[in-house]
Nucleic acid binder design. Structure first.
Lengths: 154, 154
DNA sequence: CAATACTCGGATATTTTATGTCCGGGTCAA
DNA sequence: TTGACCCGGACATAAAATATCCGAGTATTG
């Protein structure tokens, strides 16, 4: 699991309290992380159309839609890639007892068990939205972030 | 997700059809994979007490208990490690708006969402046993594997 | 309208992890 | 006692994640 997922999620939650575009450098300063590497994660979010990037002097990143419409799964898939974590290499078709490809119409049992587990994982991530995360953050902290982002900052 | 998990699972299923210890080299030949690297995975299974290694001339690996008593989760945790895939670095305690450590009694919201998803994933893997996997394998193929393992082999 | 300052975006190094390999210690069989 | 075989941990290599830099573009601003 890529560690950048944590940064991306925190950024999305922070952007909930922003009304103007926020530069990547400011988000990096807020979380005290590498500015250039955080930019890479934000680019991934931009490619997935979760955030919209505006350029120019007063540019930065903003959420493309309501936080309630963005699930945690969306962010994870944007950063870590949409593909499954477990990839079946079709071992059953190899070795001295290889089963012919024509008999492999259904996916192998192991592959299916892993896929089912990943589906459960995805479903769990899908049930939580960025709005849900922001709602559970302490009210004081959210207020501080809002003023820090919209104001001059430290 | 480590690719060796797939190898380990296939080995466990194959060992279901074995009545005598099977050397790692033979399992590698059966699946046509790197013998030395497969040995590493089997060592992990041995450390987790899922398989028992017997040394000497007629040595090899055997399952320590009934296939019904070994879950897919056991194998995955043995190979990939028992720790969670997502590790919270406590970003909320960093940066200019860092919240004091004394206020962080409960885990952060993002960490909890990820942990819940992983729990769902683990529960799914726990419901499937090695015996379940073996049961769903084609009867002919299982018979072939049994004779290949217990007989002289190719 | 031109210059400018600030932003994102992709191409580029470095470090960590996973992958693959090797040889020595130990054990059972003969 | 001898021998051969097997496992176990220590050692290279390859891939990926992490961290970084410089160029392309745009809205501001004089």
């Amino acid at each position: 699991m890529s560690g950048g997922v944590e940064w991306a999620l925190h950024c999305c939650v922070a952007l909930t309290s922003a009304e103007a575009p926020v530069p990547a450098a400011r988000l990096a300063h807020l979380h005290d992380v590498s500015p250039t590497y955080l930019a890479k994660q934000l680019q991934a979010l931009s490619r997935a159309d979760l955030v919209r990037s505006v350029q120019g002097k007063a540019g930065g990143y903003i959420l493309t839609r309501s936080p309630a419409q963005i699930t945690v799964l969306d962010v994870v898939e944007a950063v870590d890639g949409p593909g499954p974590a477990f990839i079946c290499t079709e071992i059953r078709q190899r070795g001295p007892l290889a089963v012919p490809a024509q008999s492999c119409t259904a996916p192998c049992v192991i592959s299916r068990a892993m896929a089912d587990a990943e589906t459960a994982w995805r479903n769990a991530l899908r049930t939580t939205s960025i709005a849900d995360l922001a709602r559970d953050v302490d009210a004081d902290a959210r207020s501080d972030i809002s003023s820090w982002l919209n104001g001059a900052g430290a």
